Every structure is written in structure tokens, then in C-alpha cells.
Computed example of a mutant assay.
Amino acid sequence: MSSALLITVAPTGAETSKTDCPQLPTTLAELVATARECEAAGAGMIHVHIRDDDHRPSLDLSRLTDTVQALHEATDLVVQLSTGGSVHDPLDQRLKVLDAAPDSCSLTMGTTNFGDDVFSNPWPFICELYQLAQDRGVVPEFELFDLGHVTALERLLGKYGLPPGGNVHVDFVMGVPGGMPGTAAALVAGVAALPPEVTSWSATGIGRSTLPVMLASLAQGGHLRVGMEDVLTISRGVPVDSNAQLVERAVTAGRVAQRVPMSGAEARALLGLPETGGSAA
């Protein structure tokens, strides 16, 4: 078990409105300030969704490009763009996210029910997005919402080979209504099913499953994703003040497990990225 701990912060997401949660970082200035705070607190990577001028989810390429550049200039964090967007975004727009030249991108390994909606990730789209990431030198983080997604990952790697840099990093997204439950038992089953090509994995617990998933991941030597995309309370009934507060809690839990937060440079090495900002191409 490695003593190093990758903490990814997912500060915004596409589901929560600014009206309902004023502390949610939705402008570029807010996102950059959040990234700096979270890096100082112990984050090594940032998972990014952006919003438009009305604080609505957006996949605008110009905004995405400006966001990647600003985060690279302000921090040493690995910048990972979501290719999921919101559940309503069309597939062709989601493919164009890679034109913003992030270090990493999320790549969800299958369609899943998402509350009352459907998060669509058909197999041809997965294959096209993966090949595009390979061509662009963007390192995917394979998002696994269910055990069937683990099997799909094995199929994808068998057909198209390894990502840029040769390392395979996955993230279990747990506790989404319609996906795998956010329990220790589910995480144990998922980890046991991972194909041998996987070199590192993290886990995300949505809502009330945040703490159980965090502790189960640390117990198995996994890494963590935290942030206001995934949970809006720091304890029962107590709203989160900031994303840095969630990163700090993850750092504290890691210390109990004798795990030390990775820097951005160490996160790059884990993912197979070059030492400085930019893609692996």
C-alpha cells in the first residue's frame, strides 16, 4: 500500500444551482481561487465543470480553453475536464471538450440511470472518445458508476490498448441513484474486479455515502475524490463552506491512515503525464 494519496477536488459539477448554493464556484475567478485554496490544502488534481454567465452548465469551447489556461497559470494541479457535462449535453459537444487541451479528461464507461435522468454513454461514443484522447495525448480517468463498467473498461483496453503515458487510472463514482451503492462492500467488489492494466484507482461517494466511501477507499489503499460536485454538507445538516474544507477533511482522514497528500507533480507521475502542464502528446 502506497503512503502517497491523490486527492482530486470536484468543485462545481453540473447539478447544483448557484441560487441554491451561493458558495459554489461558478465563475472563472471563483474557480481559480478555489483551485489555489484546494492545492494549498492538499489537492493534486481538479475535476472541472464550467458554467456560463448565468451560472448554467456549459461546454463552450472558448470558456473551457480559457479555464484550462487559467488553472495552469495559477496552480500546479492536474487539470481534468469533464466530458460528461450535464446529462442533457449532446454527445458531439462532449467530444469537443478535448479541443481545450486538458491534462486529463473523465471517460465514463457506460450508460447509467442518474436520479430521474439517464447519463448516456453508448459504446460507440466511449470508443470514439477514448481514441480521440489517445490521439490528443489526454490521459483519461475512467469513471465507473457500476460493476458492469469495470467489464466495459477491460473490453476497451483489450481493443484499443493503453492510454497516453501507459498508466490506467479509474474512479469509482458511488451512491448515485441508479448506480452502485456507496458502501464498503460494493467498493471491495469493484476493486477485486479491476483488470490488471489498472495502475491506480480512486473513489467518490455521493451525498451521504461520502464518508463510508472515503474510509473504505483509504482502507484498501485507494485515492479520493471530494468536492461540492459530490456533497454539499460537511456533517449532517451543516452546509459546506468551501471546497477546501472538504479537501482538508480528506487530508485529515488520510493522515489517520498514514497517507500523505500528493502534489500536482506527484499526481502527474501517477497518471503518466509529463512533468509540466499540458497533454502527454
Rank of each mutant, 00 (worst) to 15 (best):
L215G: 01
G44C: 01
H55W: 06
D89A: 12
A14Y: 00
A269I: 05
H169Q: 13
R259F: 00
E128W: 07
Q258M: 10
S3C: 06
A70R: 04
S86C: 15
H223L: 03
P11S: 10
G264P: 00
S58K: 02
L77V: 04
D53S: 12
S279T: 07
A33C: 03
M180Q: 13
V176S: 04
L147E: 15
A29T: 14
L59V: 04
L162A: 15
R94N: 03
D66E: 14
A216W: 00
Q23A: 15
D89Q: 11
T8H: 06
A29R: 11
S242L: 13
A253L: 02
K159W: 13
V48M: 05
D99W: 04
S242P: 14
P57S: 03
T83Q: 00
R36K: 15
F142H: 04
A133E: 02
V238D: 15
H169R: 13
E154M: 04
G13E: 02
S17E: 10
I126Q: 02
F125M: 04
G237N: 00
E229V: 07
L77H: 00
A43R: 07
T210G: 13
L246Q: 14
A244K: 08
E266C: 05
P239A: 08
R255Y: 10
V188S: 14
P122D: 07
A253C: 10
G179I: 08
P212T: 07
E248S: 13
F114R: 09
E143H: 11
P196T: 13
M214S: 15
